[in-house]
Simulated scan of single mutants.
Amino acid sequence: MADKKYALVTGGSRGIGRAICIALASELNYPVLINYQSNIQAAEETRDIIVAGGGEAELIQFDVSNGAETHAALANWKDQHPESIIEVIVNNAGVARDGLFLWMENDDWTTVINTSLNGFYHVTKPLMQDVLRQRYGRIINIVSVSGVKGTPGQTNYSAAKAGLIGATKALAQEIAKRNVTVNAVAPGFIETDMTHTLDEKELKKLIPLNRFGKAEEVADLVCFLASKKASYITGEVININGGIYS
């Protein structure tokens, strides 16, 4: 029996990822693995907030778009924690390279697909065996309203997130018998570093609730899906967007 159950959040150093890390530690008492790619300062800040609140957190650095690097980091962590298991996997890492498809560079297409969609594969696959063996786990993929309805100027991002939605629905059916749920959370406009360049005043007019969401509100939903309370929910895409697309 694994002695310690962890939650891993990719792209956990800032924004929605940070809020999810803090919520999983404080609400569900998980020791949290905060994945980050390069911004160690932001990752350490997230860890310090969790520790200050009485929680546990560790940093784990890898680029989800790089399969070899991801596998090596996860294998190394497992070697150092032989009795532990990562039973909650939150695939949150993502990157936007917006622009009209007509002018989209190859790199802008592949970087976005490699991070959101291939990143899910690189992270989730090596961790699957443990959750299937213990017959309990939660896989939560952070997608986007763009992946549900498509957003002009974000064909790459919409494609990556829509692909992740398809993966969520298929994998949920494959592993449901083992009591492992797979769900997706699709935020609309949320106040983060990623959206701070947007014209919030204009965009608010499109949102029935007339405001951007908060990262903490997304984190609360993720926490619910990661909890025992959500045991009968799998293969779902839950929108959290203030009514902009429902």
Rank of each mutant, 00 (worst) to 15 (best):
A68I: 14
I233T: 02
V131T: 12
A159L: 11
D79C: 11
K201D: 14
F224P: 00
G99N: 13
G99F: 10
G119A: 14
I89V: 15
I165V: 08
L198Y: 08
V9S: 07
G12R: 07
N118G: 07
I20M: 05
Y232G: 03
I142G: 04
K201C: 06
I190L: 01
H71L: 14
G17L: 11
L100N: 15
S116I: 07
L198I: 07
I89C: 13
G15L: 15
L117V: 10
T151A: 05
Q154W: 05
T124M: 12
G242A: 05
H71K: 12
M128F: 03
A52M: 08
E105F: 07
I20V: 15
K125F: 12
E56C: 10
G150Y: 02
G11P: 01
N241G: 04
A68Y: 12
N39C: 02
G163M: 06
T195F: 02
P187K: 04
T155W: 01
A42Q: 05
G213E: 01
L100H: 15
L203F: 00
P126S: 10
G166Q: 06
A186L: 03
T197Y: 10
Y36S: 09
S227L: 07
N66Y: 12
E216F: 03
K161N: 09
I207W: 00
T192D: 05
N76W: 13
I142H: 03
H81V: 06
Q173S: 10
G67N: 13
A93V: 09
G235W: 04
A68S: 14
S116E: 11
R133S: 11
F120C: 14
G147I: 00
R178G: 09
A215H: 04
G243Y: 02
A43N: 13
L164P: 06
T155C: 11
D193N: 13
G54L: 12
A2Y: 12
K177D: 08
N92L: 09
A72H: 13
V143H: 04
T168H: 04
A226R: 02
W109C: 15
I22G: 04
A215G: 07
I142L: 14
P152Q: 13
T115V: 15
R135H: 13
G188R: 01
E87Q: 14
V185R: 01
S26I: 14
A42E: 09
I240E: 01
N210P: 08
S231C: 10
L203P: 02
M194I: 10
P152G: 08
G99M: 11
S84A: 15
D107F: 06
E83G: 08
Q154V: 14
E27I: 07
I34N: 04
F120A: 12
R47G: 08
A7M: 03
S246I: 09
N210Y: 11
G11N: 02
Q41R: 12
I16E: 00
M1E: 12
V51L: 14
V222N: 01
I16H: 00
